[in-house]
Design a protein around this nucleic acid. Structure first.
Lengths: 147, 147
DNA sequence: GAGATATCGTTGCGTTTACAACGATGTCAA
DNA sequence: TTGACATCGTTGTAAACGCAACGATATCTC
């Protein structure tokens, strides 16, 4: 590991850059799977995946929890509704809120995708080898710290 | 750490998603620094940083080495040339190639940015704590594997 | 209760992006 | 040498992006 003095810099070992490259490649590789399998885009996949564990979630909550900005959630969920994968319903207690929830078709689609996701992750973890546990721990910490 | 069976899935612990979120936040936080300090965009910063360690590099090489596609390198380097931070010169040995190299002004700008970059990375590493070494090792391995 | 303020989801819009195609140059083979 | 093929950087273009502003609803304050 190279020592970094003030006027010394190596892009290849710069953390934000490495993260961007690795994340971009992983995201692209996995998106090719669910794009081919289900025609979903990245924001669409994230919304569907988030809805899986929580019934009736507002646009706002998805925006906060999944790092998608509001317009993205709004438009992606429009497309998903048009395809019959989820339904949008105004919350009667607070009519500013729109609750999203999966349709049976949406849930069925995710049941098909989840094994592929777990399988993809498994391959990544194998790449990491012995550092896998520490890597995931560090990643989780970074997620929480900057939340 | 939660065990994942086929029909069990938690987006928050899904590696590609975690990577995308963490990378996006780190990239954005750091880009605010060099954007405020030097008015650079992400591809512009990457090109400048890559040129720092290698004189006279072709567009193609930057494209391959920094995960920027060719049009991005082409247009970003146009802007950088217009601002006097680098020069483009056709390689006389192979006139298809365009060699990029920093001007003195470009190099001076980077000398100002590098301490900020190292300082930013230092803060990230402190967040990682004891897992930092394993994290970087795993990250480097993933970079090389998918190259 | 009424007006001011805040929050939600949507829409508008200028910019950036990714992908393909192009002209220019170089290489290879017959 | 010449024609076919490959590679380089640029340009064109439709789609996606981020950010701000909007209408609608809710809350807070007096």
């Amino acid at each position: 590991m190279q020592m970094q003095t003030d006027s010394n810099f190596d892009l290849d070992n710069f953390l934000p850059y490495q993260l961007a490259v690795v994340a971009g490649r992983a995201s692209k590789a996995f998106s090719e799977i669910y794009s081919a399998e289900a025609g979903l885009t990245v924001p669409e996949w994230r919304i569907m995946a988030h809805l899986l564990k929580a019934e009736a979630v507002s646009v706002r909550e998805i925006h906060l929890r999944t790092d998608l900005d509001k317009p993205k959630v709004s438009r992606a969920s429009d497309r998903l509704e048009a395809e019959g994968l989820l339904v949008k319903k105004v919350n009667p207690r607070d009519r500013r809120l729109v609750e999203l929830s999966l349709t049976p078709a949406g849930r069925a689609l995710m049941m098909k995708l989840i094994p592929l996701a777990n399988q993809f992750q498994q391959k990544l973890l194998e790449q990491l080898g012995g550092d896998a546990a520490a890597f995931r721990a560090a990643l989780s910490r970074m997620m929480d710290d900057s939340k």
